[in-house]
Design a protein around this nucleic acid. Structure first.
Lengths: 212, 212
DNA sequence: CACTTCAGAGGACAGTTGTTCACTGACACT
DNA sequence: AGTGTCAGTGAACAACTGTCCTCTGAAGTG
């Protein structure tokens, strides 16, 4: 027999997921600290008290959403960075991935952008932690590239932070662009590419310019 | 006789300011969309209905807070950019100003960081508009510098956006650092300086690298 | 002085919130 | 087959929300 996890647990996870989905939907037009427990359960079609079977409070649900939004991204990022392409192509590929991700999971991205500095401490910390993990991965990848020869470790890290932050900002800008004039999204993408290019140029001349 | 605004209007503005201050205080630990009108009036010590004499709703109060937080900054930014100092000193001066501003008006900065992507449309737009004005001023200043000779207008703008965004991010990072381990703030400042330096290097080599 | 204006008070309204408690009934385990 | 577990129910709770209405009294106006 295949280990079927039990009808019991399966149903539970189903409701749990329904709660997460409902919350994510409602969060498109408000922030977590104003989202009510009853509001969520009402959408799912379940009694308010059922919420407690899955999360202690809204903060806990928020943290779960953070994992859902950012957890799956690591593999993707690592794949891009591992590519042995030229700087220019890598930039294009990176921006493309961000663009696609925003288009496919807009609500998740919006949630992260909104709650990154939002009103719920636990969620803020979860996001910060996840972004730190990204920066770590980026830093590790940057370090293996020849351009980084002679760089101090903390300078590699500062560059990694710069990259990660730029991608997050670009993603957020793309969201804002979506419900604006058409063509605005393309402009954002074009600007993002050039900004990354400028950073890349600065990187190439960092040592020669006496980075310290 | 000096044109005394009238005791009436003076008192009104006083309560209005009290409402703004109280709201700003409460917003340190929650976001605007969860802030209640009664909550604010309670702190000030006035009847809930008095709120309506000053703002239609919380969104309107939020917009007023945006102006309070960002409006006064323009002169300061313009002053720094007008300085005819070397790139290195200008970076130091800029970071210093950001640092000081965060230390002197932490609540305002936190508010902007939080509501920049927050749940209230009107406030988001107000912040975006104000940041756009900043970018415009920065772009205008950059353009007068010799390093920008031959640059396309939209590339100057893309650089301006990069700078402004970096400053906003740095300010937010400084806030997070404040209620963390001591010494973290210094690290953030150091990183910010080096990131700006890297961007500055990229800028110097932009044309030679065939910025297009 | 009488007369208007209007910031703020205070009561009342219907709705909503999070949390508690005892409960049911289908699944899981022996 | 018998028994315990536990996801979800439904009623009740005190506390709170935004908004409406009428009222007051001090400041402004001539």
């Amino acid at each position: 027999m295949s280990h079927t996890l039990g009808v019991r647990q399966a149903q539970k996870q189903k409701t749990r997921q329904a709660l997460l989905d409902a919350a994510l939907g409602l969060l498109e037009e408000q922030s977590l600290s104003s989202l009510g427990l009853r509001e969520v359960t009402r959408v799912v079609g379940v009694a308010p008290t059922a919420f407690y079977r899955h999360f202690r409070d809204m903060g806990e649900l928020g943290v779960a959403l953070v994992e859902e939004a950012l957890g799956s991204l690591h593999a993707m990022v690592r794949a891009i960075l591992a590519e042995q392409a030229g700087a220019e192509e890598r930039i294009d590929r990176t921006v493309e991935v961000v663009e696609r991700h925003v288009r496919e999971h807009p609500a998740h991205i919006r949630f992260v952008a909104r709650e990154r500095h939002g009103g719920v401490r636990a969620v803020r910390q979860a996001i910060a932690g996840e972004l730190d993990r990204f920066a770590e991965e980026v830093a590790a990848a940057l370090k293996t590239q020849p351009v980084s020869d002679g760089w101090r470790d903390d300078d590699v890290w500062m560059l990694a932070e710069l990259y990660v932050d730029r991608l997050v900002t670009t993603a957020a800008a793309l969201l804002d662009a979506e419900d604006g004039e058409p063509g605005e999204a393309e402009r954002v993408v074009r600007v993002a590419r050039r900004q990354l290019r400028l950073i890349s140029i600065g990187r190439r001349h960092w040592m020669a310019a006496g980075g310290e």
